[in-house]
Design a protein around this nucleic acid. Structure first.
Lengths: 350, 350
DNA sequence: GTGAAAGCGCTAACAA
DNA sequence: TTGTTAGCGCTTTCAC
């Protein structure tokens, strides 16, 4: 069997209280005692039972991270960011993918009410407002990684979708593109809605009419990007000057379909995306860079701060920057100073 | 505070024993009693404390998954596979990235000796044989996702690196390539060593000499792929007929450097990789398809089987298939029936 | 079919 | 400075 506190007691002759204190760095033990105990513990290979500790202390040292089934290429980087910061603070991560929307709630409820975790980080889930309100009664913090929230005990880290979409739209317009199609994301998603809205606004501000036929519905997946373009072409419509896909996955889908049909980008039409996933750089896709790792890191920081009652900011909105590459046929580069853009500009949502 | 078993007792008037039995589906409770208890529990929103359960039952319902810091693009898919199968069997996942080699062992030791998890899935870690041997004394199963092992209580899921490298090398040779360079992975890594060895063998079998200068050292990273090619070109060497990178990340690095220097693939040199990460398809990179999700799923299955004492196979080696795309300038397609290739061919390593 | 009580391994209040 | 002891919330043996 495994080594318990009692084994260390037996070996050293001290009581459980003393041994526990010694091992936990309490100042109420003699230095000699501590050394003896620590030594013995090491020799025996003693490690405290997490279950017992958890039961007594009512802490789990654990943060749950829940991701939706569909992956926008985001996943790994965000998780890395979370892990980095969480592990710095000695928190471990429990990860789960949701398999459908019911599952989302089941998972969350279990994690929360079984007291398995000390905080929750939720990514792009489709939770109704009412459910969130219930959740916010939980004694532990919840961090949302999609939309901003104004609710007690809920925190958020999101990005400045509007500015990103605006900048990139402006970029296209400045370089002479007029008829611009937009492949939108799933309606009702915060990111998708914001990006589309900013696109519309910016077009309007520039005196360009947005023909609703040029708003092609998509689902943030590669396949939906392909389909959007395919439907357009199949109806014998002429290509627009440029295509703005609301995320890179769809842009990549669009690109592959365009190539299959014999079109060249940017010769026949410019193409841009949003997110800056790995593949975007390799394909020379112009896009809006989203600091995924940093988002993860901040989400974890927010969670940790709240657990330890270091009341910090409630919400972050991170700035983004355009990454101009070959797919839009313009001089390449980054729209703003990347260092500045990457620096987390705090912005409380008050 | 949260709801405990006692609250349910108070509400129903039954003892903890009965309530516990009723909730856990024990046959030793009257049907009426059970209904009453279940009803009350639901009303109160009772969920058993994981900590208490864990302490009593000595189970954690948890599988740890440990990944190395460097990501070969593998990560997400493998984790999805693991999650899929683990969650089917009601296991949760604890994930961690190692930050350096010391960290690897620290993490593992903690997870194991704090009894936080019921099984361990380790991916491509750099653990010395001796450490593994210690680990195998643990009462719970350990699944390695890199190399095959022959050790009690250790299981592995790996892929047929040799066959993959052999097939792809043959493919290149059949299509007329003779001077083939190989960008190798980090020495001492199982995958890297196997792939290189098979490349050498296959070249030999075809009567082709392998000039050691054409074995370029790499580290499985994109940057190292770039460097390998850069060093070669900087020394004013002529491009080989084809370049076989031991993984896709390096192939992609090589590709971007070649393009920067004004070379075209496959016109100036063919280029192939190994792994079939997402980006490979988008870039038209010929490569060896590795069924990552399936590997994850099998790893989880192995772990679950062992936890529940369903002595199953100890090790799997999955077959792979070439995915021929444009980067090698050959007719495209898949080398073998993909359905057949994807079907897990069991192969006990005895 | 149900209940009383012990105990999983730990921490911390209280006593000495 | 150290020890005794009472739980944390659950499962399960043993009695009834």
């Amino acid at each position: 069997m495994h080594v318990t506190l009692h084994d260390v007691c037996r070996k050293t002759g001290f009581s459980t209280a003393t041994v526990s204190r010694a091992l936990n760095g309490s100042p109420l033990v003699a230095e000699d005692t501590r050394n003896l105990v620590v030594e013995a513990a090491k020799e025996l290979g003693y490690q405290p039972s997490h279950a017992a500790r958890m039961l007594k202390l009512k802490r789990a040292d654990m943060i749950a991270v829940i991701f939706p089934e569909i992956d926008s290429g985001f996943f790994t980087e965000v998780l890395r960011g979370i892990d980095e910061t969480a592990s710095e603070h000695s928190y471990h991560l429990m990860t789960a993918f949701t398999h459908g929307p019911d599952d989302e709630r089941n998972l969350i409820s279990r994690f929360v009410w079984e007291r398995r975790v000390d905080a929750l980080i939720l990514m792009n889930l489709t939770l109704p407002e009412a459910y969130l309100r219930d959740l916010s009664l939980w004694e532990h913090p919840i961090v949302l990684m999609d939309r901003p929230v104004r609710m007690d005990n809920m925190y958020s880290v999101s990005i400045d979708n509007r500015n990103g979409a605006r900048e990139l739209t402006n970029h296209l317009i400045e370089h002479g593109y007029r008829r611009i199609a937009f492949i939108s994301g799933p309606k009702g998603t915060y990111d998708a809605d914001e990006r589309l809205a900013a696109f519309r606004e910016t077009m309007g501000e520039n005196g360009l009419e947005v023909n609703d036929r040029l708003i092609w519905p998509g689902q943030f997946t590669e396949a939906s990007g392909r389909d959007a373009v395919a439907r357009w072409l199949d109806a014998d419509n002429p290509l627009p000057d440029a295509i703005f896909a609301a995320n890179d996955a769809m842009a990549i889908g669009a690109l592959s379909l365009l190539r299959e049909r014999g079109f060249r980008v940017p010769r026949d039409t410019a193409l841009v995306g949003f997110d800056d996933i790995d593949t975007a750089a390799h394909l020379g896709l112009t896009t809006v860079h989203v600091p995924m790792r940093r988002m993860g890191s901040i989400a974890a920081q927010l969670a940790v701060d709240q657990i330890s009652q270091n009341k910090s900011l409630t919400s972050y909105r991170l700035p983004v920057a355009c990454a101009v590459r070959s797919s839009c046929g313009c001089p390449t580069g980054v729209s703003s100073d990347p260092a500045a853009a990457d620096k987390a500009k705090r912005e409380a949502l008050t």
